[in-house]
């Protein structure tokens, strides 16, 4: 028997609607959870764990996040400063920015200085950093810790 080769001109098309729906759902999920504020965090800093620390409920009027390494170097906004004694220009700049803040002028004493120190940092170095901030009239400090449940 001779085989007859039938020519099909139809194009097979799957229904793409559910896949596109799911993909958009995934994109929306990741967009909502993405955190662009990583520049404030230094990933190498291992924070001490604690159960009772209160998660920040509202953002302070003005905050300065200082990441402190065990060797005494400070990472601020992705920029590393090797010695605490060299922090003055950065702190003065931040104080000026807080005073000229668009929403509300924040005096130096009300700037929230958030210290993210590595858990193995000698406390003397943390105190040295606090002393440096105090010399620029900052007095509101927050020790940031990691929630122990995570």
């Amino acid at each position: 028997m001779k085989f007859k080769n039938k020519k099909h001109t139809e194009i097979l098309e799957g229904d793409l609607t559910p896949m596109i729906d799911m993909t958009f759902q995934l994109i929306a999920f990741f967009m909502l959870l993405i955190n662009f504020s990583e520049v404030d965090r230094a990933e190498e800093i291992v924070l001490p764990k604690s159960v009772l620390a209160t998660p920040p409920t509202e953002r302070p009027d003005y905050q300065v996040i200082l990441n402190l390494d065990p060797d005494g170097s400070v990472v601020f906004a992705g920029q590393r400063v090797e010695q605490i004694s060299l922090m003055s220009p950065i702190l003065i700049q931040e104080i000026n920015n807080a005073r000229r803040s668009r929403t509300k002028s924040v005096p130096a004493k009300d700037i929230a200085v958030i210290i993210r120190a590595h858990e193995d940092t000698p406390t003397g170095i943390v105190q040295e950093l606090i002393g440096k901030c105090q010399s620029e009239e900052m007095e509101n400090f927050k020790f940031r810790v990691k929630d122990e449940e995570y």
Binding site: L52, A53, P56, K146, D147
Partner: peptide
């Protein structure tokens, strides 16, 4: 859409919950 999806998957990082202890130290 797939390009966007790959971008978000690669940049996704689970943020650990953090807390604060307030220390007020007037000079």
């Amino acid at each position: 859409v797939f390009q966007l999806l790959v971008f978000f998957i690669l940049t996704f990082k689970v943020v650990v919950q953090e807390g604060d202890y307030n220390v007020r130290m007037p000079l």
